[in-house]
């Protein structure tokens, strides 16, 4: 549970995600999706309730869980006045990634930014900057991705990249939690969908054998 000035933004959400499973979170504006995600990303401490990530109790040892986490928001979360390379070097150092000299070019070529490695991120287009965010996200091989509307501002190339990343994550036995407005992606790219409304989880269902249209109808009903 997390309250802001007496109003509960997230209340009584009980979640468990097995390795290799991807969860998407959907719901109308103000449903508490982002707050839930910030709690999962160890950016907010819950006022009540507990969080355990990759076997680490985050109430006391959030620091130990953080190496396993990859967080991406609407923004790429990189320094605009540093070059792509310098940004990755910084985050590589912060996460203690070894062999940065080889891993940075790898990460950059994966998102198609190797030719621009030494340009400041400020000179990038919105889509390129967001791809830069994906490079940052994956540099340290996280076990759990925490994504807040990651498709916002992403170009077609970046969207394909992220789709591929999420697909690869499931087969690699890793997990992802993603907040999104796009019901189609929520169903296609996740194994489970959580529907939130007014800070509460109102539905959780498996996406296996579910088609997006059927889910959209159900979502309309739940959030009306």
């Amino acid at each position: 549970m997390r309250a802001f000035g007496g109003r509960r933004a997230v209340d009584g959400v009980d979640l468990e995600l097995a390795p290799g499973r991807r969860l998407s979170v959907v719901g109308p504006n103000g449903a508490g999706k982002s707050t839930l995600l910030r709690i999962l990303a160890t950016l907010l401490r819950p006022d009540a309730g507990t969080l355990e990530l990759a076997g680490h109790d985050c109430d006391h040892h959030a620091q130990r869980a953080r190496p396993s986490l990859g967080y991406l928001g609407h923004d790429p979360l990189v320094y605009l006045d540093l070059t792509a390379w310098q940004n990755l070097e910084l985050f590589g150092d912060l996460f203690g990634v070894d062999d940065l000299r080889n891993r940075i070019p790898d990460a950059l070529s994966r998102v198609g930014l190797l030719p621009r490695a030494h340009d400041p991120v400020r000179t990038f287009s919105r889509g390129m900057a967001q791809r830069m965010g994906i490079a940052r996200l994956t540099l340290h091989d996280p076990v759990l991705l925490v994504l807040d509307e990651p498709y916002t501002g992403l170009d077609a190339q970046g969207a394909r990249l992220l789709d591929g990343l999420l697909e690869g994550f499931a087969s690699g036995g890793r997990g992802a939690v993603m907040v999104t407005h796009e019901l189609g992606r929520a169903v296609d790219l996740a194994d489970e969908v959580l529907v939130m409304r007014a800070g509460r989880a109102v539905d959780r269902c498996d996406t296996a054998g579910m088609d997006a249209a059927a889910f959209a109808a159900r979502y309309q009903e739940l959030t009306a």
Binding site: L43, R66, L77, V78, D81, R136, V146
Partner: peptide, 18 residues
């Protein structure tokens, strides 16, 4: 200020930096 203007703080805080 760069952290706030360029919204990098979340990335720094989710990194395992004491």
């Amino acid at each position: 200020v760069p952290e706030r203007e360029q919204r990098v703080l979340d990335a720094l805080l989710t990194a395992p930096v004491p």
